[in-house]
Amino acid sequence: MTTTPSRSPEILRYTAFSADPAGGNPAGVVLDATGLSDAEQLAIAADLGYSETAFLTAPPAELSGQERAYTVRYFSPEAEVPFCGHATIATAIAHAERRGPGDLLFATWAGTVPVTVTEASDGTLRATLTSVEPAVHEVAEKDVTEALAALGWSAADLDPAFPPRIGYAGARHLILAVTTRARLADLDYDFERLKDFMLSLDLTTVQLVWRESETVFHVRDPFPVGGVVEDPATGAAAAAFGAYARELGLVPEESALELRQGADMGRPGELRVELRAGDPRVRVGGTGARIPEAGAR
């Protein structure tokens, strides 16, 4: 049954990780979700049909004295998720266009996420989030086998230099790296089988990776648990991947990585992943743009 919101909040549409509204990952943004119920927020997200929509309300008591602090919740068309990177970037850009660049503090289910928005000399806004403390976990061989079966891939497709792991930086992502760009481009998976597998491991996406160079990676993120075939640009997975690459010694402890995502969907975007020596948290940044109403879909 469709739920009609009890009031009419302003619903914005922004893309993240691209300055072009036709690129990056679209997100819904509600800068004032005061009074909206869970069902109403889910209904708005489902109506928009984007992989996530972010809803801002007043901050929790422990952050109430801090300027530009908010509670943020994220809904996919089918469920609430603990954290969403691209919707965080989109929300920060939308906020900055109305109230100016600067620092924000978002209280999420996963933890407190600082975000900084800067403005370039040409007026371009760039937002950078700092993840919650990440973690990298082993994954059972049988689970890798099931993931590959759902994807229609084989073990021979995997890059032995990148062992499968589950990365976490606010949400859990299975990381699988392949040996060729062609294999990454050829994605036609069993939606229901992969969804069931992901639900069994509490995964938000599967982060599929191909390494182009020392610092440049191409990635794709199936997202069937959110009712979406694929996410065009995934900030939370980018943060998890940064932690994974550092922990396994695949990149230096202090690194700036470029993740390219969305080109195979016709929505190219770029995510900058910054790793700092001595700081376990991962920074993920990018540009954003408002999507004109006529091109909202």
Rank of each mutant, 00 (worst) to 15 (best):
E67C: 06
T34Q: 15
G28W: 02
G278W: 00
L184M: 03
E253N: 08
A19T: 15
L148T: 03
A39S: 13
E146Y: 01
A22R: 15
R13S: 15
Y70T: 04
G85K: 05
R246C: 09
D157G: 04
A239H: 06
E254N: 12
E119V: 02
M265Y: 02
D122V: 05
S154I: 00
R246V: 06
R73H: 11
E138L: 10
T116F: 01
L184C: 09
V132D: 11
R290Y: 00
T15D: 07
E138V: 07
D186R: 13
E247C: 12
R68M: 11
R211T: 13
E10Y: 04
N25C: 06
G35P: 06
R260Y: 02
A79W: 02
E293Y: 11
D159A: 15
E10F: 05
L194C: 05
G227M: 03
P60T: 14
C84E: 02
I291P: 05
I11G: 05
R246L: 13
R297E: 08
V29Y: 07
G226A: 13
E192A: 15
A161Q: 14
L259V: 11
L12I: 04
R13K: 14
T234V: 09
D279K: 01
K195D: 14
G65I: 15
A120H: 08
D143A: 04
P5M: 07
S76K: 04
F106W: 08
L129N: 09
A185P: 03
A16L: 06
L203S: 14
L125I: 01
D32Q: 04
I89E: 04
L129P: 01
R260Q: 11
V117M: 06
Y244S: 10
L125Y: 01
R98N: 04
E97W: 04
A110V: 06
A239F: 10
D196Y: 12
P224D: 12
G266P: 02
R211L: 12
Q41D: 06
G235M: 14
A45W: 03
A237I: 07
T108V: 05
K142Y: 04
L31P: 10
D264G: 01
G295D: 13
E146M: 03
V115Y: 05
R172M: 09
S18F: 11
A296E: 03
S213L: 08
A135I: 06
P164M: 08
G152A: 02
R260E: 11
H86S: 07
T3M: 12
R297P: 00
S76Y: 06
V282A: 08
E52K: 08
G269V: 01
P252Y: 02
P59S: 12
S76F: 04
E119S: 04
R126T: 15
R181P: 00
G266M: 09
L63N: 12
S213P: 03
R68G: 07
H173I: 07
V30N: 12
F17Q: 05
F75W: 13
Q261E: 10
A171H: 11
E253V: 12
E230S: 12
A147H: 06
R276M: 05
G102P: 01
R276E: 14
E293P: 00
A149G: 00
R7V: 10
G262H: 00
G242Q: 07
G266V: 03
E253G: 11
A92S: 13
S37M: 05
T2D: 14
P9K: 02
L208Q: 11
L257M: 10
H95D: 14
G269L: 01
L174Q: 11
